[in-house]
């Protein structure tokens, strides 16, 4: 996984609440057995109609089509647990998502894929929407180490993030490797732990 420190770029304002993972990556693209190849289908039904780009969708418009930062409304990433959603987002080139809240599973999945989901209070999100409306091509600098985002007009907002999550992104942790270091503890846990179902059916 790519490690993550500072990031700057254009903010694409996606003015929608409850953006679900079905919308982020529609089911017809879930049949791939690889982790790659999803980026081009990101928001497929919103971006395309009859195979043509729909101009009414933000990521189809210049200069937002290459924006690495996505701004959205509450409950982003709700619905299906599909990690294909963050795979598509990361492959498309989006590395930061700003929203007032995220759905649990999606939020977790982001950190495993080098995406930083930032939770900000509604009023900060509203302010950012306003700014990106007022100055098309509005850019932000995201500094994970110092937990803040700023624009070139002197606006600065700090954000919270659990230190473990921050490390996960900064260092690109191999979680499985780390857990396997506790293999002996898992072994001894298993000795005393009871499971009552039997699988030989």
């Amino acid at each position: 996984m790519k490690s993550f420190k500072r990031f700057s770029g254009i903010v694409a304002p996606l003015d929608a609440a409850n953006v679900d993972t079905d919308a982020i990556i529609p089911k017809q693209f879930l049949k791939r057995i690889e982790r790659t190849g999803f980026g081009e289908f990101l928001f497929y039904e919103w971006r395309y109609e009859n195979g043509r780009q729909r101009q009414d969708f933000i990521l189809s418009q210049e200069p937002y089509c290459k924006a690495p930062i996505l701004l959205a409304r509450k409950n982003f990433g709700c619905g299906s647990s599909r990690e294909h959603a963050p795979w598509a987002i990361a492959e498309y080139g989006i590395r930061v998502i700003l929203a007032p809240s995220f759905a649990d599973i999606f939020y977790n999945n982001c950190f495993k894929n080098g995406i930083l989901p930032i939770v900000l209070p509604e009023r900060d999100i509203e302010l950012l929407f306003q700014k990106s409306r007022e100055s098309p091509g509005y850019q932000l600098r995201v500094d994970l180490e110092n937990q803040r985002i700023e624009d070139s007009f002197g606006c600065m907002v700090e954000f919270d993030i659990v230190s473990y999550r921050k490390d996960q992104l900064l260092r690109g942790l191999d979680e499985i490797g780390a857990t396997l270091e506790s293999a002996e503890l898992i072994d001894s846990y298993e000795v005393a732990h009871k499971i009552f179902y039997k699988l030989e059916i």
């Binding site: 599909r82 990690e83 599973i105 495993k112 499985i176």
Partner: peptide, 13 residues
């Protein structure tokens, strides 16, 4: 529910 990276984590550990 869990994501695929977590599926891998559970399979391995």
């Amino acid at each position: 529910g869990i994501g695929t990276s977590e599926v891998e984590h559970v399979l391995a550990t």
